[in-house]
Design a protein around this nucleic acid. Sequence first.
DNA 1: GTCTATAGTTAGATAGAC
DNA 2: GTCTATCTAACTATAGAC
Lengths: 219, 219
Amino acid sequence: MSAAARATRTGAAPVRERRVRARNERRILKAAEEEFDRYGFGGARMQRIADRAGLPKANIHYYYRNKQALYNAVLADIVAIWNAAFDLISPDDDPAEALAAYIRTKMEYSRTHAAAARIFTGEIMRGAPNLGEYLRGDLRTWVAERAAVIRRWQGAGRIDQVDPHHLIFLIWSATQHWADYAAQIAALSNRKSLARADYDAAAESLVRIILKGCGLAPR
Amino acid sequence: MSAAARATRTGAAPVRERRVRARNERRILKAAEEEFDRYGFGGARMQRIADRAGLPKANIHYYYRNKQALYNAVLADIVAIWNAAFDLISPDDDPAEALAAYIRTKMEYSRTHAAAARIFTGEIMRGAPNLGEYLRGDLRTWVAERAAVIRRWQGAGRIDQVDPHHLIFLIWSATQHWADYAAQIAALSNRKSLARADYDAAAESLVRIILKGCGLAPR
DNA sequence: GTCTATAGTTAGATAGAC
DNA sequence: GTCTATCTAACTATAGAC
């Protein structure tokens, strides 16, 4: 019996083996994220994921039962980061400051987590076959809470009477665009890729237009 | 030798056969659009496209050499409709009216051509491997011309000094969102699908926020 | 836990009769 | 131009030695 098998029985894997597992899972998830981003679920190849991760293909199946399970793990990762990153916006905040900060944070996410952002869009575009629970659960709660905050701001006359959901979707779409459409933006500006300054400038344009569009002073 | 083969040699196919060809190509393209939308290029299956079109699989290959050629035909269709639909915006237009009309038209496109819109997004997200020429050609010209119009408006003090490209991308993303993220919007509002009224209301919110955000009076 | 070899299955593409 | 049968390649997944 192997050390790992013994450890599983006793419920405590040796530290070294847990570390190997953690490192390999990280490598595989990273490689899978790149592959699913570039080719979509149907176009992704387990062999290429293995090559990117620097492991034999069989090892991918050792850690993840099948392609679907690996894809679900990548999605879970994306949703976890998403949940952790966007706890902003409470009723006591200044509306202009809170919205400006949210736009800038979301844009930064599009820049630093572009592949994750695109995989998320791909999943939603296919009808969210693996994220229905998340959309109808955590995300719906999040949206309802933020919409309530915006309505309280509106009740206090601190922001224009725009549909809170429409405002949230506007911010999501305008920032997400810089991940999903990065290739188009680069092609239109005759460049190979976008720089940090491009995202920063775009975020400032969005802050300016959206805040003013809601009757708020610039921040 | 068949009538078709004879006709090909003489350069004039009989009317009936041309009609059969046109009808079948339309059916196949429609079925392919649905399939590529639902599953992406890699996940699309020629057999399902054939089933949707009500034809044997071999016939799909008779009209389109392979899967890639069929996908390219679908993309060409999408780009053609796109080019035909958005010739709006000239320097003599009233900025508020022109932008409002563009937002409403683009939103209508997201509603009535949702599958096409999503396939386009998917292609761009994969790095636009089959649309580089279009992006660097027709689309770049289109964007440059519209940006020039916006700059003339700005020179005449008719609209705020916002980056014209950022404004165009904002309108594209905010309207495109209602095609790409329809599943998420429906899930968040606990409904199975979106109605025309949803798109219309969203368009009016966007017109209101974006026009005001650019220093324009509502239209 | 790692890796080679391969089983098993699917799907794109084609041959050839009609 | 249509359709059935089939070829072939590619890919997911697993068996089993180490």
